[in-house]
Design a protein around this nucleic acid. Structure first.
Lengths: 346, 346
DNA sequence: GTGAAAGCGCTAACAG
DNA sequence: CTGTTAGCGCTTTCAC
């Protein structure tokens, strides 16, 4: 429209009677320009209210200093804190983040990736949806030679860089802890089978059982999603079947919250009647009652490592080899599953 | 680097032996081009793996189809859900969101706004930090004629469009409810005095008291931040002073969580010894025990309205007049503050 | 219906 | 140290 035109390099150049190249260089601190000139130019640029046009700069430089970020959710503690860490790390390295949220929808995921590609981001960090099975998009990204790093949820195919946490070891530890507390009837409310994180957490649970000579009861392994309703429904289902476990290991903290809700509905006391540990900490785990023990994931580190990885790839795509980094997890015991159980014989 | 070049309009043009203008028009469904030609062009574009270059397009079109979003936090339920709503609304309208997170830091806020301006976003939606007092940035945005909408937290100066919720009425309702439940010793853990939302919530609390002939005890009004530690510290402080209220109205839900934690530490039973209502719902309010009553904010609507407003402004900047929209809030009573209190005389 | 020319604002390469 | 030239990939007139 009749919008006021932004000041351009040329405008400054005219005022100062030099060429726009000089202005451009001065503003970017190019060594070519004398200090006095730089100071003068910077001063007038500010006075004139100059705002560099990144669109033009990016087109010309064939680089955007921008990282595309694709996540399934945002109103979830895990993603919220990973995203914050990624933003911080990017900020420190003078990169912008373009965040997209897929809402666990693969179609959206594809559209967003295409947008990011069209925006010519320098690289992409992605945590795939729980339904992402088709890999063609990622292969085409590889063909286009766009750096990519998978975060937490990784794709099965191809050889890509990724940062994950020790899902297997974390689950194993948590489950073993429950066994040591004296539980023998253990359930697992698991996630979608297709996703690496659910599968590894499931494996950790099962192996901890078999290693301790406890039979795995298939009825007590319920696959669902990652949200509270999944936990709620799962416990309700077990209650209906009239076959309750003593302990539940849940794949995420929202699932555990669902268990709390269902337990209240059923008149079961968490920790006394039925005990719980979940994978993944959150801001509220320590506030709910009884406070919720969990497998802690280093979200801050996860985000920062992802940024570090993508930058390395951006800065040296030629000689870059995919790296798979797995960060350690910790068992954080709060009130749930904290008391040794006195086993009452049969 | 030696990166594989992206396919350009020219590349497609050469293959098809037409001019790049024809390709450009066809791909954008311009009526100029015949249907047959369009189909052919679109088909080959896909075959060749063409990815339109938005950077070039934006530079040429002087429009980016992009909205800048500035928020103080992201790992917080309120912002998480507002942001998701904004993304959804933008997606439906074919706009991209560029999200920036200030971490309640005004310096970062300024830097991010400058970046967004340099990226030539078509408009900005912002929720300011709890420390933002300097208004010069927003005046300069107005001068640059960049559309802007304030969301929830608004700036005091100037006449800008904004979407907020009924902070005053919501607080008033909540406080009045507590009074009706029989409480006479009411406290308010408030937010920073400078921010509109804290101030309105504070006003609602105070007016509900005075309208019901209850004296406002200044000791029971504690100004702090919006996080759990603030709630924790506030209750601890009151406990030390040995002068506990019966009821606390907190400015946010994290502050209430802090109160829960402090109460546990102090051996006080929430709801029995000390009751609580908070402003703002979250995914966990109903899971904690006792479940937390609150003033519900329509986050989804808030986000969608903000997008609607900014689009209206973008599409018609000339004749646009600032709009101030205030969305209604609801009182959601769960377990806390749900039982009529039998007042025991002195 | 199609295309040639010009330009968006900036940077890189090279010449002075 | 400073400036000239060319071009990034696309869209917008305006001719044909």
């Amino acid at each position: 429209m009749a919008k006021i035109q932004n000041i351009t390099l040329n405008d400054i150049a005219k005022v100062l009677n030099v060429s726009k190249v000089t202005i451009s260089k001065a503003l970017r601190n190019h060594p070519d320009i004398s200090i006095r000139m730089k100071d003068l130019i910077k001063k007038t640029a500010i006075e004139m209210g100059y705002s560099p046009n990144f669109v033009a700069r990016n087109l010309s430089a064939k680089k955007t200093n921008t990282i595309g970020l694709v996540v399934p959710k945002i109103a979830h503690f895990f993603f919220g804190s990973v995203i914050e860490a990624i933003y911080d790390a990017a900020f420190e390295n003078n990169y912008e983040i373009i965040l997209t949220v897929t809402q666990e929808n693969q179609e959206k995921e594809n559209k967003y990736i295409q947008s990011l590609l069209s925006m010519r981001v320098d690289g992409i960090i992605i945590s795939i949806t729980q339904n992402t099975v088709d890999c063609s998009m990622f292969e085409s990204i590889r063909e286009k030679e766009v750096p990519i790093v998978f975060l937490d949820r990784v794709v099965e195919c191809g050889d890509f860089s990724c940062v994950t946490v020790e899902d297997y070891a974390g689950s194993y530890k948590a489950t073993e802890h429950a066994i040591k507390m004296g539980y023998t009837k253990l359930a697992h409310f698991a996630g979608p089978k297709e996703i690496n994180i659910s599968r590894e957490r499931y494996r950790g649970f099962v192996n901890a059982l078999t290693d301790n000579n406890i039979r795995v009861n298939e009825e007590w392994i319920i696959h669902g999603g990652y949200s509270d309703v999944d936990g709620y429904n799962a416990l309700m289902k077990l209650a209906e079947a009239g076959n309750l476990p003593e302990f539940i290991f849940t794949v995420t903290y929202p699932v555990a919250l669902g268990v709390y809700a269902a337990a209240q509905k059923l008149g079961l006391k968490i920790s006394q009647d039925i005990d719980v540990i979940c994978f993944g900490d959150s801001d509220v785990n320590r506030f709910i009652s009884p406070s919720l023990s969990c497998v802690y994931q280093p979200t801050e580190k996860l985000g920062r490592e992802a940024v570090k990885m993508i930058l390395e790839q951006i800065n040296n795509y030629e000689n870059y080899n995919p790296v798979k980094l797995e960060l350690p997890t910790d068992l954080v015991i709060r009130e749930t599953c904290s008391k040794k159980r006195i086993t009452v014989p049969g």
